[in-house]
């Protein structure tokens, strides 16, 4: 019940400041703007040529990155918003529900709303003649694995934010930025310096983007990741996500204890 209510609450916070149509437009404009920025960069460098594997690679990677960016950026804020802005954290705590479940619900709705923007980007991709070869089963795996690792990372962040006065959005944005830079989302891993690649291969997002390309474009064109089987790129991020979810729950328990002990549930720093 708390899951459903928190999902509904997230939708209301996100959408009820305006009419539904305006919200729909608002929800897709940012991801579309980000995609067009990359497409324009590509267009300028190729002298107007719009095609080839590179365009498909960057477009699909960037479109799916929106799920990570929008969800993680939001998750960074949610605790601070509840505690400092709306000052409702203490009321949420004394209501008969788990705050952890509440966070999962709010994150899940943000993920869903970002999914709508992703759908629009995929449709726009047809205009750019992106050669989609969608494997629907793998696509389901993309969403399941993606949701698990993004929410796992997000919940871990939320735990940290229970103890901090600010940096909420910044921490989420930083994590998303690291995934963008190091996971081969818009350019092949081979472009990165050799010493960074080892770190890239430790990130679940690297495997997830490889899974995305296999599911949406039908094959993996990235040389480094092509060495992994599809099963490996499903299992590795899934395993990491399970660890992240477990860690986030354990850290939440610890942070929850500390927050109560230090009397930080109703802390307002006016940052």
């Amino acid at each position: 019940m708390s899951l459903k209510s928190s999902m509904w609450l997230q939708y209301q916070i996100d959408a009820n400041w305006t009419r539904p149509l305006v919200f729909v437009v608002y929800n897709i404009l940012r991801p579309v703007g980000a995609a067009l920025l990359l497409v324009a960069m590509f267009y300028v460098v190729t002298g107007g040529y719009m095609g080839g594997g590179s365009l498909a690679y960057l477009y699909v990677g960037n479109a799916f990155f929106m799920l990570i960016a929008q969800t993680l950026f939001f998750v960074g804020w949610v605790v601070h918003d509840d505690r400092e802005h709306y000052q409702v954290l203490k009321y949420l705590y004394i209501s008969p529900m788990s705050y952890f479940k509440y966070l999962i619900g709010r994150t899940a709705m943000r993920f869903l709303l970002s999914g709508f923007a992703l759908m629009v980007l995929i449709v726009l991709g047809y205009l750019l003649r992106i050669p989609y070869r969608i494997d629907w089963l793998l696509l389901v795996a993309v969403f399941l694995v993606g949701w698990a690792f993004i929410v796992g990372a997000g919940l871990l962040l939320s735990g940290i934010n229970m103890l901090t006065a600010r940096h909420g959005g910044a921490v989420g944005e930083a994590l998303a930025g690291i995934f963008y830079l190091l996971s081969g989302a818009i350019f092949p891993l081979s472009i990165l310096p050799q010493w960074v690649r080892g770190f890239s291969l430790a990130l679940p997002s690297t495997y997830w983007f490889s899974l995305v390309r296999r599911a949406v474009l039908g094959a993996e064109s990235e040389e480094v990741m092509a060495q992994f089987t599809t099963l490996q790129v499903v299992l590795y991020p899934m395993a990491i996500s399970m660890v992240l979810l477990g860690l986030s729950y354990l850290s939440f328990l610890g942070v929850d204890h500390l927050t109560r002990k230090k009397g930080m549930l109703d802390m307002t720093t006016t940052y």
């Binding site: 990359l38 960069m41 590509f42 460098v45 190729t46 590179s54 960057l58 930083a174 930025g177 690291i178 963008y180 830079l181 989302a185 818009i186 350019f187 092949p188 472009i191 990165l192």
Partner: peptide, 14 residues
């Protein structure tokens, strides 16, 4: 982070 990503993106396109 994003500046570096865009720079590497341009490098990938030569």
């Amino acid at each position: 982070l994003s500046i570096a990503a865009f720079i590497y993106f341009y490098r990938s396109l030569n």
